[in-house]
């Protein structure tokens, strides 16, 4: 076979699945938008009332009529659905009922805080997990047991309990770390730790198992036979081998961090998507809930596409799949 054809096939083999995945991603977005749109129709009560500050606000009939017209509540469900899809396609997430603001800029403005928090937590969690896994795989049976125990307990810690416990110990009893974010780096320590510790528990478990498997594998044995130091074997061979399950875990870690951010941002009074979402849920601010859900869905899909591509790059076997 001629060389160019071969190359084209190779390219197609990478691009083909990626194109299919992109199509799938668009489908998922459409489905998420439709599910949320029709789901919120099930909410009892008048959305115009919600715009005017809820049933306790004693809004006048004129104001209600005005709002119904402005938000299109007086139109048929189909018209509203198509209008909603049209708006979403152009990136318009609608207008918050409660916050008197467009949802798009609001949600994007809150994105940074959450991304910073989640990214730092992910890094710290990896460092903690690596340190613990490396220590406990080399320290014999006792270290393995202690390591395993620590990981299970860490993974079981609810964010809200960890957060309040950290505040009591470090802010109230010891007075060494601020309980709220003040813009400085110290304000980030407790929220990041709260998110990172349970995640590290999970990552550590997976990582240690992969490490153990890797350390028993032929290539590590041969490296040992070549006379490489234990530390060299661990860091260069075993850890690299163990990185694959780690990459595939990132999508899950992302979801876990988003859930955690809801709690952490509320307790530590940090601006972010999680706090926005929780506020919107308690106020039944439907457009904001949809907006946050859509942004998270987009981020999640991007994340899976990325990890997928990364896995394919790291492990050539996957390209054939």
């Amino acid at each position: 076979m001629a060389e160019p054809v071969n190359r084209r096939r190779a390219v197609l083999r990478v691009i083909g699945p990626m194109a299919a995945r992109l199509g799938g991603a668009v489908f998922v977005l459409w489905a998420v938008a439709s599910i949320t749109f029709f789901a919120v129709r099930l909410i009892p009560g008048d959305p115009a009332q919600a715009v005017l500050g809820g049933p306790g606000s004693q809004a006048s009939p004129e104001a209600l009529a005005l709002v119904r017209n402005e938000y299109g509540f007086d139109q048929s469900v189909l018209v509203q659905y198509l209008a909603q899809l049209g708006r979403l396609a152009t990136g318009d997430l609608g207008r918050s009922y409660a916050l008197n603001q467009d949802v798009g800029p609001l949600v994007l403005g809150q994105l940074g805080g959450t991304v910073l928090l989640a990214a730092l937590a992910l890094v710290v969690a990896w460092l903690l997990a690596l340190a613990l896994a490396a220590w406990s795989t080399r320290g014999g049976l006792v270290a393995a047991r202690v390591g395993s125990g620590l990981e299970i307990v860490a993974a079981a810690l609810p964010h809200f309990w960890l957060a309040t416990s950290l505040i009591v110990v470090f802010s109230i009893w010891l007075g060494v770390l601020p309980p709220i974010s003040t813009g400085g780096a110290t304000g980030l320590v407790l929220p990041v730790l709260t998110l990172a510790v349970p995640l590290a528990g999970f990552l550590g478990q997976v990582l240690r198992e992969s490490l153990l498997t890797a350390l028993e594998s032929p290539f590590v044995l041969s490296a040992r036979a070549r006379g490489e130091s234990e530390r060299g074997v661990l860091w260069t061979h075993a850890l690299r081998h163990a990185s694959l399950p780690a990459i595939s875990l990132s999508g899950w870690a992302f979801g876990s961090l988003i859930s955690g951010a809801i709690v952490v941002e509320t307790i530590f009074a940090r601006p972010g998507l999680g706090r926005t979402l929780l506020n919107a849920v308690t106020l039944r601010d439907v457009p904001v809930v949809i907006g946050v859900v859509m942004i998270v869905a987009v981020a999640y899909i991007l994340m899976t596409l990325l990890t997928d591509a990364a896995s394919r790059l790291v492990d050539p076997r996957l390209r054939l799949a």
Partner: peptide, 12 residues
Amino acid sequence: PDSASRYAALQS
């Protein structure tokens, strides 16, 4: 919004 965080922030 969290009353414990609020008081801790005042204390510190």
